[in-house]
Design a protein around this nucleic acid. Structure first.
Lengths: 205, 205
DNA sequence: CAAATATACTGAACAGTGTTTAGTGAGCAA
DNA sequence: TTGCTCACTAAACACTGTTCAGTATATTTG
């Protein structure tokens, strides 16, 4: 009686088909300009079919949300090879900026858009992704404290403070508010600010 | 020949009528859920009429963008009465957080939404508002440097660094990403982070 | 004052959106 | 082979921003 299993597999394949098309269009043309009809066209199904596999557009967004965190964790995870915890923290910062700049739509989805947070799954599931990433930051900070780099012992608050700075910096850039620099100087300005911030961390956190 | 003047006045009145209705609805129900038709209903005119006074929805948004900066500058301007520049900077931080929390839709419009930046007026005009506010921050920082509080002499970078932190902190809160705290503890967490950041500033910027 | 014109406004349409529902048709179970 | 389940879709609903032809009123001109 392998029919049920095959149907289950086909259902999962269809979900993937939809999600892959959604991701492709989403990354190509941004969230706002990606319509259910567009996704349906891409996979050569009717728009109504999509609703048999995903409750609504927000749920589709939520699925991509998970993807985005997975990808970021994969890239940030590379820093594990760096022994010194403070050097690792710095490299995490660089990778964070790199990820945000290279994946502006994903970054938006992860940390700025309200839509995925409104998917009803948000009771617990959606927090997990963000909390896991935040936990990784806390781990590194804890090691920094243990190694004597930071004097502040409230890891939660230290992590929020560092993340706030990083998120603010890349948000200002991604949302085109870095008008204090002339065109082309934004990245250099970010770099200088990052150096300043890390020197503050080194000296007094 | 006061007819032309009267017509000019009436035209200006109509622009205000539209903008006031737009602001009201916008603040009541957010940008996304405010439609041109809704605004038209509120002022008892046809939707097409609005297009005789504003080019499109983005231009309407842009007009509110100016308002929002005016309001923020008014509230931040109160700190001028504080003599000590570092104390003034701290109070500016408090006021910034207060403004963001009390006016989440306006904050979004000012620093997060891409739409108003796409109004064609953005060549120069739209930058002015933001740059003026950034200039105010730079002034205070310059005074801090002159008073011997900060050692870093690159005001532009110092200002970007401080703003980045502030913007990140309130953005994380406004966009419901402060899930590391349990409900009701977010404001307290922000406060603690702000204290930590300012102590970092005091010791080493 | 009457005719011509300029202006303010609108109804209706266009092209799109997310979403729902009634119904079709192919594959499976009896 | 019949009956039924279930994947799928066409069409509709209720919206959205925006445009345009046409109307009705106010103003200017002859």
């Amino acid at each position: 009686m392998g029919i049920a299993e095959r149907k289950e597999r086909e259902k999962e394949d269809m979900r993937k088909l939809i999600l892959n098309a959604a991701r492709k269009l989403f990354l190509e043309q941004g969230y706002e300009k990606t319509s259910i009809r567009g996704i349906a066209d891409a996979i050569e199904y009717s728009p109504a079919t999509i609703y048999l596999y995903y409750k609504d557009k927000n749920e589709l967004l939520f699925a991509l949300h998970e993807d985005a965190f997975l990808k970021m964790m994969q890239e940030l995870g590379q820093v594990r090879s760096i022994h010194d915890p403070f050097a690792r923290l710095l490299e995490m910062g660089h990778q964070y900026i790199k990820y945000a700049i290279e994946n502006p739509e994903l970054y938006d989805l992860m940390f700025i858009m309200k839509a995925p947070m409104e998917a009803l799954a948000c009771r617990e599931e959606i927090w997990e992704d963000g909390l896991k990433a935040f936990g990784f930051l806390k781990e590194v900070i804890t090691e920094c404290v243990n190694a004597g780099y930071f004097k502040n012992k409230n890891i939660e608050i230290s992590a929020l403070t560092i993340w706030s700075y990083m998120h603010g910096l890349v948000s200002i850039y991604l949302k085109n508010r870095m008008t204090m620099f002339q065109d082309g100087q934004e990245l250099q300005g970010m770099q200088q600010s990052f150096v300043l911030f890390t020197s503050m961390l080194r000296e007094s956190l």
